[in-house]
């Protein structure tokens, strides 16, 4: 595995854990104020993740260029390089994580009042960061054929 991809997986490991801890804190909140504080932390953690991915991209894009990925029956073609398979896994990891956080947000909005201005604003920032993650710079690195 290249040093760049190892570093990228480390960024994902560390930041996914931080976001998960904030979501757990929000889910255990005793009132809307505690929930809002935790939601703000989740938003910040997601923002940091997006920033780190963006920095990684600007450091590595010139070196690695774009990766061509041929998909057959939902998975990389048997002739795909190891690098292409690793990229496939990284993009799916990010996508599934985004789905997890979105699912948690739906439930948190049921537990706490989604109309509360502070809570709503914090949740809005989380969703905006999730969109950023979904459309992040890494998506442009892989060309699916």
């Amino acid at each position: 595995m290249s040093a760049g991809i190892t570093e990228l997986n480390r960024i994902l490991d560390e930041n996914f854990s931080k976001v998960a801890a904030c979501i757990e804190k929000a889910s255990r909140a005793a009132n809307i104020h505690e929930a809002t504080d935790a939601q703000n932390l989740t938003g910040q953690a997601l923002k940091s993740l997006n920033q780190e991915l963006s920095h990684w991209h600007s450091r590595n894009f010139q070196v690695m260029g774009q990766v061509h990925l041929k998909i057959h029956n939902n998975f990389p073609d048997s002739n795909s390089s190891d690098e292409a398979k690793q990229w496939f896994a990284i993009l799916n990891r990010i996508s599934v994580f985004e789905g997890e956080v979105r699912g948690a947000q739906d439930q948190l909005e049921q537990l706490f009042d989604p109309a509360d201005p502070g809570f709503s604003s914090a949740t809005g920032r989380i969703k905006s960061e999730l969109l950023g993650l979904q459309r992040g710079p890494l998506q442009g690195l892989v060309i699916q054929e």
Partner: peptide, 12 residues
Amino acid sequence: VFLAEVRGAQDK
């Protein structure tokens, strides 16, 4: 909330 996370992951 954890169950909802799993459901979100499963959807994806």
